[in-house]
């Protein structure tokens, strides 16, 4: 699929999304306001926002891969994942209050995150390269969010919106991959103490490792290297659950320990 929109229209779409972050007011689906928006256009819209953010001094800390489960691919009618950019200021601390007001309509999902010890430059990256480049796996929770009204997203909408990124919480225990079977590595997700989802690494393109291969080769084709030290969120092990002020969500993994996201209650002034 090639670009359909002119540069002016793509810049306009990027401005709409940047404004939504600023005002906290979501926008209608871009595929409605900018008919003809293709996947290629959408990545350009994402990169225009990334350029604005880096120019403003924000630091890229890694990437996320989205749309990696059979269920979500069926729901959006796609057969490929997508990716977005993670910035250092999107990382929150395990068990430390997260200001819920930072988000528009946040949802949360458990992931087996990777931290790289070597750079990965695609195309041509295989599972063997990826396994060699991963320093460790670590329990994580991804906060996803949408600048599009009511999550009414199609594939180009979510790609343009930085793959619906919101925030990241990493656990505290790095685990080397040696001998870990990530495909059958289980997770139990609790919200306010109650089990809301369970899943396993196999939900992520068969294994989270596969998502990293896809990411390295996909961004590699655009001339982008995944840097040593960067964090990759390869995709969710379960469906996402809604979160709001006052909620506490804990993901307990086999082998990887647990990680907790706690959202600050709204104060009375709010």
């Amino acid at each position: 699929m090639s670009a359909q929109l002119g540069p002016g229209e793509r810049a306009d779409a990027a401005r709409l999304l940047l404004k939504a972050y600023e005002t906290g007011v979501p926008v209608p689906p871009l595929t409605a306001t900018h008919p003809g928006l293709t996947v290629e256009d959408a990545y350009d819209v994402q990169l225009r926002q990334v350029a604005e953010w880096t120019a403003a001094g924000r630091k890229i800390a890694g990437h996320k891969v989205g749309l990696t489960s059979a269920a979500i691919q069926r729901q959006l009618g796609v057969d490929s994942p997508d990716y977005g950019h993670l910035f250092a200021d999107m990382f929150h601390l395990d068990s430390q209050p997260i200001p819920a007001g930072e988000f528009l309509s946040p949802r949360i999902e458990p992931e087996i995150a990777f931290v790289l010890r070597k750079p990965l430059t695609g195309p041509g990256v295989t599972v063997a390269h990826v396994l060699d480049a991963i320093a460790y796996a670590i329990a994580s929770l991804e906060i996803i969010d949408s600048r599009i009204e009511d999550w009414k997203i199609t594939l180009p909408d979510t790609i343009a919106d930085n793959a619906s990124s919101g925030g990241v919480v990493l656990g505290a225990t790095p685990v080397p991959l040696d001998g870990l079977d990530l495909r059958t590595c289980g997770v139990v997700l609790r919200r306010n103490g109650r089990i809301v989802q369970t899943g396993a690494g196999g939900a992520v393109l068969g294994s989270p490792v596969n998502a990293l291969v896809w990411l390295a080769n996909t961004v590699g084709a655009l001339g982008v290297t995944l840097e040593a030290g960067s964090v990759v969120l390869p995709g969710a092990l379960t469906a996402a659950v809604d979160v709001g002020p006052g909620d506490t969500v804990t993901a307990t993994f086999a082998h990887l320990g647990s990680v907790t996201a706690t959202f600050a209650a709204l104060s009375e002034e709010d």
Partner: peptide, 11 residues
């Protein structure tokens, strides 16, 4: 051959 669902015993 395609993963259609995952879960743990906690389900």
């Amino acid at each position: 051959g395609t993963v259609v669902a995952t879960a743990t015993g906690a389900a």
